[in-house]
Design a protein around this nucleic acid. Sequence first.
DNA 1: GTGAAAGCGCTAACAA
DNA 2: TTGTTAGCGCTTTCAC
Lengths: 329, 329
Amino acid sequence: MPTIKDVAKMAGVSTATVSRAMMNPEKVSEKTRLKVEAAVAECGFSPNVIARNLRRSESKTIVVIVPDISNMFFANIVRGIQKVALANAYKVLLGDSIHTVEQAKAYMDLVRSKQADGIISLTAELPAEVRQGSELPLVMACEYFAGFPVPTVRIDNRGSASRAVDYLLDIGHRQIGCITGPMENPICVDRKAGYQDSLQKMNIAVDEQAFEDGDFSFHSGYSAFRRLQQHFNMTALFCFNDMMALGAMKAAIELGIKVPQQLSIVGFDDLLFAEYTDPGLTTVRQPQEEIGITAANTLVKVLQGGKANQDTIIPTQLLVRGSCVSPSK
Amino acid sequence: MPTIKDVAKMAGVSTATVSRAMMNPEKVSEKTRLKVEAAVAECGFSPNVIARNLRRSESKTIVVIVPDISNMFFANIVRGIQKVALANAYKVLLGDSIHTVEQAKAYMDLVRSKQADGIISLTAELPAEVRQGSELPLVMACEYFAGFPVPTVRIDNRGSASRAVDYLLDIGHRQIGCITGPMENPICVDRKAGYQDSLQKMNIAVDEQAFEDGDFSFHSGYSAFRRLQQHFNMTALFCFNDMMALGAMKAAIELGIKVPQQLSIVGFDDLLFAEYTDPGLTTVRQPQEEIGITAANTLVKVLQGGKANQDTIIPTQLLVRGSCVSPSK
DNA sequence: GTGAAAGCGCTAACAA
DNA sequence: TTGTTAGCGCTTTCAC
């Protein structure tokens, strides 16, 4: 593997000139530039980026901490991040924290050890130290901590949930069950508040029996619905994500409950599959790739020393598909 | 940010000793080790891994080239890779090639520039140079080139496809449609051969009208089925992956064709969703995480200078679910 | 067991 | 415009 020295020798110039010819071609005469380029081509030189990184003390790498890469929702966001990273000559180091704080911490340490320049976290399951405002270049996406002084890209969870429930109320539902996520998660608190807002606007009392907790997995949606349906009589169901909505749909069908005739269902996220179930799932669309793109742009700005927006809210959209109809009397 | 020098000064030893105390604690006296540890703790020293990498000329990073990270099939494999990487102190750099050779090449260059130690490619869409046997530490998973002298982890595509079609024949189907992938892809050629093997064993002529090409996407499955059903009369359908099977299922339902009563469907992969459709999708299970784990173990062995298996075949399994029944006469 | 010194491959002042 | 020089922060002989 040739080094910059070899190229310098071949081209009959100094290593500094080789470096310049490659990094700032305009700072070098046409003639020497060509000599250098020829030498580079001849010996197949490829600069050792580790050495460059050391010298410039930057790694041109960003870490993305994901709680679960096999979750399509996150994968789509990662894709958006990837696009922006690439366009700005950053690499993306994938950090699947598998929902553990220890893993997340390990990935954050990559910045401390200079292996990465910054972090985008798609999870709030981060070490406590971080929340006290450590000075790492960090951008949060989707999730957030209240009062966490870090640029965050997210949606209006409360308003979006409310819009979904408004829709169910509009078409006549009054008994609306709700499968939530883990309630220690701020975005779940927000979505629940949105559900309550809608009922209160219509002067409908909020029945605590209407709720069951899930953990965002298909399976938890399935079992939450089976529990819920035993103690709450409903004509419609609002789920905090699509996976749980699909699980609930499966459970309903198994119980002989017809969707949507006997039970309308609304999800949240708009995964690819939401369109393909039968009936298609009405859901709150989160523009996943756009969230990723925005988060990455924000981090890039931070890394360039710019002042980034503290909070960017990405608009959502209620997608009405076949899974909801007016309740039969 | 403190460096090793600062620690050395604080502990009253040389930088060499600090380095030893951290890397080879046994080569240092108990007493100095404690001094060093105290100093490290006090100033919050974290070694600059870039400098270490430069010195040792390794990066402890592997690149995974994925044609599409938002495809759950690949995401699951990445997860397996991630586990092994972590256990061996490697980081995983995510390379989403978005099905382009140029992107793939850019990611492969990370090895040349010493930013990564090795590559796992989940796509065969690689630059031509690579196929001539460049000397990069590379492991292929899932896909392969015939005669490509590189360790490969994959399944028996031909046998697995044949087993699926055998099953359809066993339960009485004789008119079996087939939605393939892009036929320039060797694994598609293999799966098609498996389909043909099965029919030939039963002395059933292979009708070219039975095939339609897809591109592994849901949408292509949907439209391929609409085309296929116009020129081929079938009681069963074999799809080269689950996504296309789901697309075909959707199209069938829209056309008023009852699944499985009027059309049995078999997929390939066993995505999470295959279990959750209604009816559940009968499919050839590829142990995705295991493929990732095996590929990563193979690469680690290569990187350690060991001789890796040239070809590892991971067994598949036919999962029978509700989407197949015997044809009604 | 420990320290001095060399150097991984590159970039960036500073001179010329 | 170009070369000289001095490191970036670490590991690793090689002496002691």
